[in-house]
Design a protein around this nucleic acid. Sequence first.
RNA 1: GGUGGGUUGGCCGAGAGGCGAGGCAACGGACUGCAAAUCCGUGUACACGGGUUCAAAUCCCGUACCCACCUCCA
Length: 481
Amino acid sequence: MTIRLYDTATREVRDFVPLEEGKARVYVCGLTVQSEPHVGHVRSGVNFDVLQRWLRHRGYDVTFIRNVTDIDDKILAKSAAQGRAWFNLAYAMQRELTAAYAALNVEPPTYEPAATGHVPEMVELIGDLIEKGHAYAADDGSGDVYFDVRSWPAYGELTRQGVDDMEAAEDADPRGKRDPRDFALWKGWKADSEPATAAWPSPWGRGRPGWHIECSAMALKYLGSAFDIHGGGVDLRFPHHENEQAQSRAAGHPFASYWMHNAWITTAGEKMSKSLGNSLTIPAVLQRFRGIELRFYLVSAHYRSHVEFSFEALEEAAAGFRRIENFLHRALEVAADGPVDGTEREADFLPELERRFDEAMDDDLGTPAAIAVVFDAIRHGNKLLGEGDSVALRDVRRQVEAWLDVLGLHPDDPAWGTRGAGDTDERLTHVVDALVGTLLEQRAEARAGKDFATADAIRDRLKTAGVEIEDTPAGPKWSLA
RNA sequence: GGUGGGUUGGCCGAGAGGCGAGGCAACGGACUGCAAAUCCGUGUACACGGGUUCAAAUCCCGUACCCACCUCCA
């Protein structure tokens, strides 16, 4: 079985053949840490986390690098506007981002390099490009260095665009460029408007890196001259990825074999970055939904499909996810690990479901189809539940748990954490359990005497208090509404 | 102007020539004192107009609308 992935460069789903057998080297463009992360930002994190997990599941030794861009025009502009140091803003936002990823159970990458920590590598790479005749220092005294687009005939290959067909940016400052499409590798320090802390020494004078060069430098450093997969959001295809590829290849590196791009999340038909200030930041969404529910919502859609975000859709997804959790809880109660005292029947439908799940995931990470398989298994499992403990039920439960694990959606994954509740929470549960237990005894007496009015009144009162009662074959159960 | 993508039932969201993915909601049935949960069942969905084919949501041509990128962007 091979994993097949959609490669943006060739615009087709291709068998994944790593450069080195059994290893997968992946680079994903992380974020520019300039504002609080919103739902759109973390989609990329979640999507590529699924890729990472699936590759591992399939036995690959994965090296996964996801960078952080911690210096750029926007960071400088925003920090100046907020009256704080740029490095303070970047660091604060990076911490927010890390918290957001953690809240969504996005596994940390192998390493998370920051642009500011790799200036020497970038300077070296720019030097190579100048030497090879693909870059030049502007002669306007700005200290800028540009990539010479005309010197690289393959320019535009990733996004299939001809240089001459490109619209030159109207707002771009031509400065010392030979061609308006040339892009900055190095930006000279503007001593009058930029902080001295945002400038590093280089052969072309003090300055800071251009946006694209950092990813080339860091990918080459940690993954090598050639590596397997390069990922990011669709918007990065051009110019960012096109430029990354051009400058890396022009410097003599084969660079990435596969390019993967996740689609957008919009709200009200608009890109999130444009539309909303703060209602869709991760902390804001997490006040209304659990991280696991948000992750389920994101994973339910294919990574290359556009998603129109709405809280209604998120609520629906959460309702669906609770069906999964319900099954797991009940299955664990009925069929905990240990000797089976029920039937020894095997779950004969499982192999077929397993096959379908693997096939779905192998086919360009088909998470929607994979989740459909999980629901199919749960329907079977629920039927088994009605029959009590059995080998089959345990098999289904374990399989569902394994699937959820690989999707990063296992409710019991310690990564979801108790978020500070801990002890107090547990003690409160005991208290409530005892109090509710007393009322349930009264209700049981009333029911035994066919006094349903009293029984229902007790249930209603509990419900008003936020406790829901459910009668099961094993007796009444309570849960928080 | 160039490049890429989209339009699927009440809603979300898969699929990519034949067999109704899945979820949410709704309705009917089973179970229940009633609920809840669960199971069983219920839907003539593929933007529009042509065409190809024994067969089209899927392929081709055209039309409409939407979105993204073209040097700030997940």
